[in-house]
């Protein structure tokens, strides 16, 4: 990582190899059919800013914040679906959540998908997720509540 920041482009290529699956994992559930565009734009932003990262050990956390931001932005840009209708919630370990989530994700807004990804895929707590999303903890909490509620609604309908 230090070599990549010093301008070794072969080392940058190795950073790219390491980051690509991770960025794809974040962008896929948030940007859905725009996931590839979002992941590409996130990686572009990451590589443009790589030299400015102060603490190389923080690479993945820094990349995660950029990936979430770009995924929400690209998803909003390309959004064609209606926003979700919302009801009440299952917990993160609810067995209902083990069902294919794609149809339900499609009915959520990008912001709701982002908080779900950070909490349930990345395992972050509400406080940390709120920091990545740059919103108050209460907002992250209510988005999560509403996102899970739409899962409940989808399965009970």
């Amino acid at each position: 990582m230090r070599a990549a920041q010093r301008g070794d482009t072969v080392a940058m290529n190795e950073v790219l190899d390491a980051l690509t699956p991770y960025v794809g994992r974040i962008c896929g559930p948030i940007a859905l059919h725009d996931g590839a565009d979002a992941a590409q734009e996130a990686l572009i932003a990451i590589f443009r800013g790589l030299h400015s990262l102060q603490e190389p050990a923080a690479l993945f956390g820094w990349a995660r914040a950029i990936a979430v931001r770009e995924a929400v932005r690209v998803a909003r840009r390309g959004q064609r679906q209606r926003p979700a209708e919302l009801a009440d919630l299952p917990a993160a370990d609810d067995p209902q959540l083990a069902i294919d989530v794609q149809d339900v994700l499609r009915r959520l807004s990008p912001e709701h998908r982002a908080v779900l990804v950070l909490r349930d895929l990345e395992g972050m707590d509400e406080h940390a997720a709120a920091a990545v999303l740059d919103v108050p903890t209460g907002t992250a909490k209510s988005r999560l509540h509403r996102a899970r509620a739409s899962f409940r609604k989808a399965w009970s309908s």
Partner: peptide
Amino acid sequence: MNWPQVELTDVERFRALAAGVP
């Protein structure tokens, strides 16, 4: 949980790497 995955093509990855080279 069956989260959707994204796989980039080599050309998409290439654009990102080149973006890091002014």
